[in-house]
Write a protein that binds this DNA or RNA. Structure first.
Lengths: 219, 219
DNA sequence: CTTTGTGAATATTTTCACAGCT
DNA sequence: AGCTGTGAAAATATTCACAAAG
């Protein structure tokens, strides 16, 4: 997806960038296997589903405390729980979403977010037709209450999905409100001030990245 | 963003996965520098903007035929062109988009797509209110004409941004119509039949990936 | 003095191959 | 038989550090 900035050095503890990415992929596969009624899944099957080498799958799973049974594979339900636990932070994280346009609404509607232990607590927009309503059960507030709501709910993570013109202004407000982690889904590049983490996550980057490889691959 | 599946082995020629991803990031930065009126940008500046080590920036740029001037840096306009050229395939690629909901509309509206040399030629939906209209100048067709339109326009790449229930059915139709590269933006995992490339690009994966790192990082 | 381009050193990732369990 | 877990090898990626150029 989209892009990904690799400016995270696994400082002291925790999983490396690639591992987390792959764990998310495994989780997606596993949830599908689960829906199909599988009880056990082998590293080979996960590997086939994700395109990742089975040995690497096993190594990754060991890192998060794997529960594999030799000769059988991994119990789907248990493995799902273990991956979810290792991906999610201690307490389910509260997230604010700014922009209830097409992208914002799409993000608000994605099941995966809650499935992975994050929760969008508030949406902000400037459109009077949207303010006061709910999108996927999440309340939409007027942007002018952004600081107030974020402070009251003690939210530290935000996703910007506004038109690109608004991105910078919104960012300033978010930081002023105490947000420390921002995913910027607009075309505008935001530079992080000290103490704030910004990820410029333009989905187009991921599409391009994908297209590049898929169209170059020869087999 | 989204996610990224690393099941691309740089078969014979071409750039490795990481390089392409970083080139996209550089391009985004450079376009911003350009807008700000910069004529030359150094690897240090690009590195600062993207969070990537300047030496790595230089190595990457060399791979695509860099045009750096010692003591000065890289001429922004030229470098933008070189990166664009190396990221884009020979001829600008035609892309079909299925699903004119929130995510689909958001994708159709992203500037980055055309900026990088791809063009969405057709959008498909089932909603009579959308069919026959245009989204960001791209015509919206009834899904029942999917095969016809795609064959006529000779489109080989498609993005699925439908509700997840429709994903599998749409996928079958796309393949039947001759599409060989699919980016699946739904929660449904699609397994690729031989000869077809599928990338399951759920944007949530990238969000989670980002949140994980940003919330773990200590400095 | 600034910055590129790059050899060499280092670190990380990925894959192979097999011992050992069920 | 089939599969995990893992040491060891191979392949990649990243960073350092400096010579050469403007």
């Amino acid at each position: 997806m989209a892009s990904k900035s690799n400016n995270e050095k696994p400082k002291r503890k925790g999983l490396s960038s690639g591992v987390v990415e792959r764990l998310s992929l495994y989780l997606n596969c596993l949830l599908q296997f689960k829906e199909s009624g599988y009880k056990y899944v082998s590293s080979k099957e996960i590997g086939f589903c994700t395109g990742i080498n089975p040995a690497e799958v096993r190594r990754d799973l060991i890192k998060i405390g794997s529960v594999g049974k030799k000769g059988l594979g991994y119990p789907v339900n248990e493995l799902v729980k273990v991956i979810q636990k290792s991906l999610r932070s201690e307490t389910p994280e509260k997230v604010a979403l700014v922009g209830a346009g097409n992208l914002g609404t799409a993000i608000a509607g994605f099941e995966g977010i809650s499935r992975h232990g994050f929760k969008i607590e508030a949406i902000f927009d400037i459109d009077p037709n949207k303010i006061g309503k709910r999108i996927n059960k999440i309340p939409v507030y007027d942007v002018k209450y952004l600081e107030e709501v974020i402070k009251k709910k003690n939210i530290r993570i935000a996703i910007i999905a506004t038109p690109k013109e608004a991105a910078l202004e919104v960012f300033q407000k978010l930081v002023a409100a105490g947000v420390r982690i921002v995913i910027n889904y607009t075309d505008t590049m935001i530079k992080a001030p000290p103490g704030v983490k910004v990820h410029n996550a333009n989905p187009v980057v991921e599409i391009l990245h994908t297209l590049y490889f898929l169209s170059k691959a020869e087999d």
